[in-house]
């Protein structure tokens, strides 16, 4: 029996989307915790926060590009400046409904971004990410 991921961070202003993704991830039963941030600023605050000196350091961040306040791209700029112990353990995945190839190129060229996926996520995609990066997990 492999162990679950400690935490997954969803960064998206679309609450319907968050609801749906939470439902999907819960049904897959792969993580101890799902944290939702409604924009980039909130997400950064969460990453910087600590309990007993320990930062959350989620296993995966699913990041929406198109958001109010700090959008996905701006979030990436700020995220890069964080200390390593504040960053995600392994993976940062960008999410979008955009079909714009320019966005795809931009995401691919950023080393922090593991993958670029169209919304919505489905079980197959999440499963692939876990298989690749968290082979000792479920």
């Amino acid at each position: 029996m492999k162990k679950k991921l400690n935490s997954i961070l969803l960064v998206d202003d679309d609450e319907d989307c968050n609801f749906f993704h939470k439902r999907l991830i819960n049904r897959m039963d792969i993580t101890e915790e799902i944290h939702v941030a409604l924009d980039g600023e909130e997400a950064l605050d969460y990453l910087k926060s600590s309990i007993d000196g320990k930062h959350p350091q989620p296993a995966i961040i699913f990041l929406d590009i198109n958001m109010p306040k700090i959008d996905g791209w701006e979030f990436l700029d700020e995220y890069e400046k964080l200390e390593d112990i504040q960053k995600a353990q392994v993976v940062l995945v960008m999410l979008t409904t955009s079909l714009n190839p320019d966005d795809l190129e931009r995401a691919k060229s950023n080393p922090l971004v593991y993958d670029y996926l169209n919304k919505y996520l489905d079980a197959d995609r999440i499963q692939k990410i876990i298989e690749k990066h968290f082979s000792n997990h479920l």
Binding site: D14, D16, C17, F20, T97, S98, L99, K119, Y120
Partner: peptide
Amino acid sequence: TSHDLREPLVTIQRY
């Protein structure tokens, strides 16, 4: 338009 239309549509489909 198509981008913006697509977003709620995807939500409808998934729901």
